[in-house]
Computed example of a mutant assay.
Amino acid sequence: MGKLNDLANAGQAIWLDFVARDFLNDGGLKKLIDEDAVTGVTSNPTIFQQAMGEGTAYDTSLAAYDKAHPGAPAIDRYEHLAIEDIKAAADTLRAVYDRLGAKDGYVSLEVSPYVANDTDATIAEAKKLWAAVDRPNLMIKIPGTPAGVPAIAATIAAGINVNVTLLFSQQSYQAVALAYADGLEQRVARGEPIDQIASVASFFVSRIDSKIDKKIEDGTGGEAGKALAGKVAIANAKLAYAWYQEFIASDRWQALAAKGAQPQRLLWASTGVKNPDYPDTLYVDTLIGPDTVNTMPPKTMDAFRERGTARATLTDDLDGARHVLAEAERLGLDLDGVTATLVEEGVASFSKSFDELLGSIAAKHPAEA
């Protein structure tokens, strides 16, 4: 029983932010489930681009698909490969899902970043991917863009689990939390069950500090600004969780909970440290609390296993967190502007990875079937 198990004992689920064919086939995920209490997996276009765009692990499967579907477009070929991986991960996690009564054991698959600003297209793609994977422990990842918010409500109302991604601001998070409740309420109004539906809100952390710290390095805020380096993202996340605690105590949520609704857990994403001057477990150590998830890339998971500190920290010094954000505003660090930019950059980055992924698949010379 190591430190990752201690996180689970503190009420925080550990998910792996990585997926690849060889890793799944070699039992890597099963090992993390058995030894480190990992209970979920996240993927995104960048992860798939890195997995599929290099090496030969996918060539045999791609060749067989191409033989059965000659001339298929690259996006169909990608979806075939991705769905195979997601099904395999879901099947590996199914025992966790069953043991925890649908409260965990999920794997996430993202809608195309090309539809991030199109509500109807997002809903349609979510339904298509949900049907194609056909596993109850799948979550469809939908970005928390303005167009994504009504898509989240509609997708939940359709009985599909949702991982809301690319959340950076407290305001955006609150909007998707309310959208989740709205989707559940639509089901209740139709007399449909809500106790097997799950959602997480993926709140990104390290990218905020990267932006804010750059502003500080460039002189914004002067000497006073230097005291905020490496602190704004954590303060932002802590106050998002404080709002979550208030919301689940509200009459609106309690009415849903009485009908079996699961809370939409906050998931800390982008928890790999970008600044080498910071401890490599910074965004794990400081954000530990009940009913949360931390999805970690393998490197961060290894670091925490070796030298992390598993202690409930998420509700520590909320007044200090409020002070940090108040100072950031006073000094002109423009957190609102930073978070808006990060959403745009996130969508653009995933679109670029998707372009590269489809290009590499289109260019592949499939192995003989």
Rank of each mutant, 00 (worst) to 15 (best):
T119E: 13
D134W: 11
D120M: 05
D195T: 07
A13F: 04
I208Y: 01
G27E: 13
Q262S: 13
P45S: 11
V205N: 06
A132V: 12
Q245R: 14
A242S: 13
S206P: 05
L325I: 10
K87I: 12
S270D: 15
P193Y: 07
L342I: 04
P290E: 14
K364G: 00
W130D: 15
A72C: 07
S172G: 14
V19M: 14
G359W: 02
L331E: 03
N161I: 14
A328I: 08
F18P: 00
A95M: 10
S270N: 15
V205C: 11
L358N: 04
S43Q: 09
V284A: 13
D59R: 01
E79C: 06
E223W: 00
G222W: 04
P297Q: 14
F247A: 14
M296C: 11
T39H: 04
N236W: 02
A8G: 08
S360M: 05
R207K: 07
D218F: 05
K226T: 06
I86L: 13
G183F: 06
S351V: 07
D98V: 13
P366T: 06
G359D: 07
L32Q: 14
S206L: 08
I47P: 01
R322V: 01
A269I: 06
E35S: 10
G359C: 05
Y241G: 05
D17V: 07
A348M: 14
Y65D: 02
F204A: 09
D98F: 03
P279K: 06
A88K: 12
Y97M: 07
A179N: 13
D334P: 02
I33A: 10
G55E: 06
V19P: 00
K238T: 01
D26F: 07
I33C: 13
A153Y: 01
N137W: 10
V162M: 14
A175D: 12
L178R: 09
Q186N: 11
A126H: 02
G183E: 10
R21D: 09
A362F: 05
R265M: 15
I156P: 05
A198K: 03
T39A: 13
Y58D: 08
R94G: 02
G28R: 13
P297V: 15
W15R: 04
A367F: 03
G308N: 03
G27I: 11
S43G: 08
A13L: 12
V133N: 09
P150S: 08
A175P: 02
Y106G: 12
D104P: 01
A257E: 15
R330M: 04
S351K: 15
A90K: 03
A177H: 11
W130H: 15
Q245H: 04
R252W: 03
S351I: 04
D85H: 00
L325T: 07
A126P: 03
K259W: 12
